[in-house]
């Protein structure tokens, strides 16, 4: 909540751009910077008009084109509302932007810097993660993280990330990302864990592990028959 205030006092001075202030906030680490040109192009905003009140004003506020006198005449609560609407709209535009060629490139750099964290699974060896939404509509669920190594979903470690709306990243982002950059797809780890007692594997868990390994071998066999090369990216370690 205190962050709210910070954002406002500073942006009203126009010392820094709103986008830079937003991205510099603790908790904004998952977001990339969207080109102002993209934000002001009406074509990219189709169907977003109804997501916030006073849509045009919010857009102007995001790209620092809102007249200073307008800002100064606003009440405290109106400013707070504007700031919240700006963050929401930025998030919704962000979900569209990150699946464009430029946006994918920006997210690639963030992925390389492991800005989205690393997979907590031991056998994934600190594989960098990708953000994903389970819904494209805001207000339903928070952002989750996709691991390209184990292909599973994880919750963000920090509470400042676990409250970000998943719709600000969208359901298609990791799929688009890995299709755009197939060289990023790792070879998948096949090691698994079976609980042991003094070195002896638990019977039921060991049986399940064998059955799962059988499923893996069957998948590999069927895909190899379709000319998928398992010694390359997307294969097994």
């Amino acid at each position: 909540m205190e962050d709210n205030m910070d954002g406002m006092t500073d942006s009203s001075d126009y010392v820094e751009m709103w986008i830079d202030l937003f991205l510099g906030r603790k908790g904004s680490e998952y977001f990339c910077d969207i080109d102002p040109d993209y934000i002001t192009d009406r074509f990219n905003l189709i169907n977003l008009q109804k997501t916030v009140p006073k849509f045009t004003q919010v857009i102007q506020y995001i790209v620092d084109e809102l007249d200073e006198t307008v800002l100064e005449s606003m009440s405290h609560s109106r400013l707070e509302q504007l700031e919240n609407d700006a963050r929401k709209l930025y998030g919704l535009i962000h979900a569209r932007y990150i699946i464009t060629i430029k946006g994918l490139q920006k997210m690639l750099q963030k992925y390389r810097d492991a800005d989205f964290g690393r997979c907590p699974r031991v056998f994934c060896n600190s594989q960098p993660l990708l953000p994903v939404g389970l819904h494209d509509v805001p207000g339903i669920d928070s952002v989750r993280l996709y691991c390209p190594a184990c292909e599973d979903l994880y919750n963000p470690k920090s509470s400042r990330h676990s409250t970000i709306d998943g719709a600000y990243f969208g359901t298609s982002f990791p799929g688009m990302f890995l299709q755009a950059f197939p060289e990023i797809v790792p070879r998948h780890p096949t090691k698994t864990y079976v609980p042991k007692i003094f070195g002896f594997e638990l019977h039921k868990q060991a049986q399940l592990a064998r059955w799962q390994e059988l499923q893996r071998l069957k998948l590999q066999k069927s895909l190899e028959a379709k000319n998928v090369d398992f010694s390359k990216n997307g294969g097994y370690k």
């Binding site: 359901t171 197939p182 998948h188 390994e213 499923q215």
Partner: peptide, 24 residues
């Protein structure tokens, strides 16, 4: 479990990013 989706569609199994870990 989860599988990748792009605009609601699954990823082709033969793609590099096709599902390889469902067994896990």
């Amino acid at each position: 479990s989860y599988s990748l989706r792009v605009f609601g569609f699954g990823v082709n199994e033969r793609a590099v990013s096709g599902a390889r870990m469902a067994w896990l």
